[in-house]
Computed example of a mutant assay.
Amino acid sequence: MGTMDDLLSPEVVARLAAAVSTAMPGRELPSLVRAQTAVVDRRLRERVDIVRDALLADLPEGFDVVEALVPELSTSPLFSGWMIWPVTELVTQRALRSGSTEHFDSALELLAQLTVGLTAEFAVRDLLNERPERALSTMRTWLEHEDENVRRLATEGSRAYLPWAKRVPWLIAHPSATQHILNAAYRDPAEYVRRSAANHLNDLSRIDPDLVAATAGRWAEHPDDNTAWVLRSSLRTLVKRGNPEALALLGFSGDGLSVAQPRLSADAIEWGGTVEFTAEVTNGGSSPAVVAIDYAIGFLRANGSVSPKTFKLGSRSLAPGETVVVTKSHSFRPITTRVYYPGAHFITVQANGLLSPPAEFLVQNP
């Protein structure tokens, strides 16, 4: 099984070249042919750029060429999967080079067409960066589209902190600008869209927690069968931070909570090993408590700093005076999404955002 990088393999680039040749008979594509070998041993993002630039070089100048090409490609059985990503970026680059408002709007229409085959969420960021308000105005209309992929493009493409994607500083500076999109999407019939809306609102926790809590509060006033799940996902960051409004919306309570320092099974673990711990959570109040329990690992970074990452443990109901013991193990086996460094780490446990004292341990040299 290949890596993510192999999703845009030489074979995939060759199929794209064949699809373009079919759509534009007689057109020479020397740059796209060279791209078939140029993508080898490159990361996925680099491969996308290589193929996009090859298309820009091989095709005649002007947005009109792209505007005619995309409908032709969309009917080709060869045109599918990850080869669509560089084509979405071809569309945005040609539109931005043109500088025409008409071409800007047409590019958004083409992205909505292409996203049915593979998400155009990364390419739309270029248009958002150029003219955010105009792009959002069109993206709001996508929430009425019959295809869930187009509806999701509105919510996912306009996320403040979309993974893998370019930042759009204007979205971060104007966190309320996408409220119309979110309010139309959180009750969408497709889970795909609802999940995107929840992730989008959760992103805004990093910018404006009050806005996130207020938005979730409005959604909670008129719930449907899916609202409870959407709220849990949307508020997950605020719950980890112990935000009172978020905790109350999700039914968590407890004024007299305490969390003891975690007890570790060992003060040091082997490289690639597992750290095990237990911790006590006590309801010292006079009323029952519903408690969200999480834990955080303080991961050592390359520069010597320690960066905590929070993980869920679950929720418990505690009677007045009751203590619950939570047990967990966390693996340090190698994974592609995190680099481990030998040295001092720590664990904390939290209940409704209330942190325990940290317990330190060493990750030994490999």
Rank of each mutant, 00 (worst) to 15 (best):
E146V: 12
P71Y: 15
N129R: 15
L16P: 02
L56G: 04
N303V: 03
N129I: 12
T92S: 01
M1G: 11
S356K: 11
R232N: 05
I293T: 10
Y295W: 07
A190M: 08
V324E: 11
F361P: 10
Q113N: 11
N202G: 04
S80I: 03
V168T: 06
S258C: 06
Y295E: 01
P342E: 04
A154C: 02
L73R: 10
G62C: 08
E245N: 11
A185T: 07
P209C: 13
I84D: 04
K328Q: 13
A112T: 07
M24I: 14
A14Y: 09
M83V: 07
A38H: 14
T92P: 05
P189S: 00
Q261K: 13
V326Y: 06
G217T: 12
Q261I: 12
V275N: 05
G117E: 10
V12K: 15
E146M: 03
E67F: 11
L204F: 00
Y340R: 01
R241E: 09
A19V: 06
D210F: 02
R206H: 06
V20C: 09
T278L: 01
S317M: 12
A35I: 09
L96F: 03
G251N: 01
W82I: 02
A120T: 09
K328F: 15
P223L: 03
P10M: 09
R131A: 07
T37V: 05
N149D: 06
L201D: 01
R43D: 15
M139I: 06
S356F: 11
S100M: 03
P30K: 09
G298Y: 01
V363E: 04
T337S: 06
F311G: 00
T101I: 01
I181K: 00
R206P: 02
A19D: 08
L153Y: 10
V193E: 09
F63C: 05
Q350N: 13
A319R: 07
Y186L: 08
P189L: 00
V290T: 08
P163K: 11
A185G: 07
E61D: 14
D208G: 02
R140A: 13
R47F: 07
A228P: 05
A246T: 06
A220P: 04
G256N: 04
E130A: 15
P169C: 10
R47E: 12
T227L: 05
P132S: 12
R43M: 14
P175V: 14
R338M: 01
E28Q: 10
A120N: 12
W142A: 03
V70N: 08
F63V: 05
N129P: 07
L153M: 11
R125Y: 13
A135W: 03
L110K: 07
R94C: 01
F63T: 05
R194P: 14
